[in-house]
Design a protein around this nucleic acid. Structure first.
Lengths: 220, 220
DNA sequence: ACAAATTTTTAGATTTGTCTAAATTTTAAT
DNA sequence: ATTAAAATTTAGACAAATCTAAAAATTTGT
């Protein structure tokens, strides 16, 4: 498998092509910064290799083999991210670009040893779950901060937007995964909300609250 | 720089193209398992990029920029080898293949942090020196075991042949870098020699003694 | 249901890195 | 100093991954 092929498989997975949902060549092209015609060519090629199901004019979905392949790449990507943060003191906004390269290194032993070195982490620095060696992983029980009701309390467990600008914004406001967060007041006008993060009062815009995942603590 | 270009630069360095010595397209092709005509094409391309000096029908040598580039790649390769052995328990015969991939990862911060994590090692698992960040490195004072005279004593400091078969042979015979070694007797007939390695007697063929580097301990 | 707009595919071209076969240059031998 | 042998380059072709422009299919609006 070439690096390009792996990137297609990974992108299709992230667009939902694992739920036997058909993903359009247009959507893939947009995500990958390429043209729909290029996607069509690759769709044919990957179908030939039994990684995709492709229906002309409809879109593609991943086969079982395709899903397995995608999970393997995602596992590598997320483990490398943990490695960079835990062992090399990278910040969570610096890891993505490098992990994009490292995820393509071909050595089963290497990634298993990295997994072991990190003591088999379950989540990456952005709170996303890391598939196990045999490909299973459970999405954490979480919801967007914006979905919480006034008074609800939770723990920050992940981010939806993983861009450096958003992550740095969170750093600057001392919001980190694991922090407790409580909704004090929601503003109908602009959907912003006042929250308490680890005891500190903050005003967060809708843009922020729709990109921060929390695990709700049941009040009773 | 593409991965292929980097591999050409690295190969030319190893063939001596740093000493402003001209390396033939034939020699490069043989080393890289490709055809001389392909090398010619790449020679033109890399000359265009100011990495090579190329004289038609004569060969190529590295420019200053080419040497700097080669040293950067070799630095990465050797640091990754140390990482694999020291942090992930790879054996010295397993590291080459994986390091060939890792050496192409583009991130200055990454390799500097790996260097730091390893506490700035000077030599890789095969005894080869690791260029510093600014590109200087000194070849260790060493000679082939085969060059020693009867009675000479030394320390194993490196291998010339880094193939898995040779390295496993050394493992099997409990010969490791850092071991003391003394020449007991040299056989004129087949150039084999009887040696004492850390007190144990061994008979080594010429093939072995011409691939093991030692640092001679001056008798007086 | 049909025309217009949108999406997708096809056809043909481009770039990178490679190859084979033929032509050219250099080296070696007498 | 020629000629034969060896090494090197050129010319033309190919595969992978991409693009643009045109054609075809699908979706949408009325």
């Amino acid at each position: 498998m070439t690096r390009t092929e792996e990137n297609y498989i990974k992108t299709i997975f992230h667009l939902g092509g694992n739920q036997s949902q058909l993903i359009s060549t247009n959507a893939i092209a947009e995500q990958m910064q390429t043209k729909p015609s290029s996607v069509t060519d690759m769709a044919k090629k990957l179908t030939e290799k039994n990684l995709l199901n492709y229906i002309r004019y409809q879109g593609v979905s991943l086969t079982d083999l395709g899903i397995k392949t995608a999970l393997s790449i995602i596992r590598k990507h997320r483990l490398w991210e943990v490695f960079l943060v835990k062992k090399l003191d990278f910040t969570w906004d610096e890891v993505h670009e490098v992990a994009e390269q490292l995820e393509h290194i071909k050595s089963e032993k290497l990634i298993d040893k990295i997994d072991e070195l990190l003591d088999f982490p379950k989540y990456d620095p952005h709170g996303d779950p890391i598939p196990s060696k045999n490909g299973d992983f459970q999405e954490r029980d979480k919801q967007l901060l914006s979905e919480l009701k006034t008074g609800n309390q939770g723990i920050c467990v992940g981010v939806k937007d993983t861009s450096a600008t958003f992550l740095k914004f969170l750093d600057k406001n001392n919001i980190a995964l694991g922090n407790s967060i409580q909704v004090i007041e929601k503003e109908d006008f602009d959907m912003s909300m006042r929250v308490k993060v680890e005891g500190r009062n903050l005003q967060l815009s809708n843009q922020v609250s729709t990109n921060l995942y929390v695990k709700v603590l049941e009040s009773n």
